[in-house]
Amino acid sequence: MEPKSTTPPPPPVMGAPIAYPPPPGAAYPAGPYVHAPAAALYPPPPLPPAPPSSQQGAAAAHQQQLFWAEQYREIEATTDFKNHNLPLARIKKIMKADEDVRMIAAEAPVVFSRACEMFILELTHRGWAHAEENKRRTLQKSDIAAAVARTEVFDFLVDIVPRDEAKDADSAAMGAAGIPHPAAGLPAADPMGYYYVQPQ
């Protein structure tokens, strides 16, 4: 490690700092970075083959696509792997809380740091959609509960979010959206449900 770091290669000529100033919601302009190689190496998830008929569902699906496109853009722009938005030591401690876990590779908490960031962003994004449906500007616990109830991939969180709150939030959300209330909170009525069950 140290010998490599002590032998610096010749410094490259740097131009002006690259700026990404697109406003939220607007289409991202084509920047100096071409996304084709990333797409070739790691193809982005395909669009759902059966898009929901409701326009609201289509808008939600479109927002999700923009969300993941933004994730790719941010990863392409990442050049510093030592500054993380989440402390690695704490991630490692949570991993080690499982006594079966013996050794953790040094890269693992770094990958988790990025994954948790995406997880927080996705959960917040879906929760905010619920807050907007209820004409609120404050993200509340019930919004997170609704996001968990609506998304099958978040089923492992049902014990973290109170069921009563999730049920009430889901009922209110379904009522507001004009969708018939599904039995026992099944995600069948979730417009994004088909997206997650599609093989990729």
Binding site: D98, T124, L139
Partner: peptide, 30 residues
């Protein structure tokens, strides 16, 4: 800080929403 990245500037986050997200992240890692 991470939550605000995906929210509009006028959005507010209640304390209980932050708490439940903290719990969800730890559960996600485990």
């Amino acid at each position: 800080r991470i939550m605000r990245q995906v929210l509009p500037p006028y959005a507010k986050i209640s304390d209980d929403a932050k708490e439940v997200i903290q719990e969800c992240v730890s559960e996600f890692i485990s």
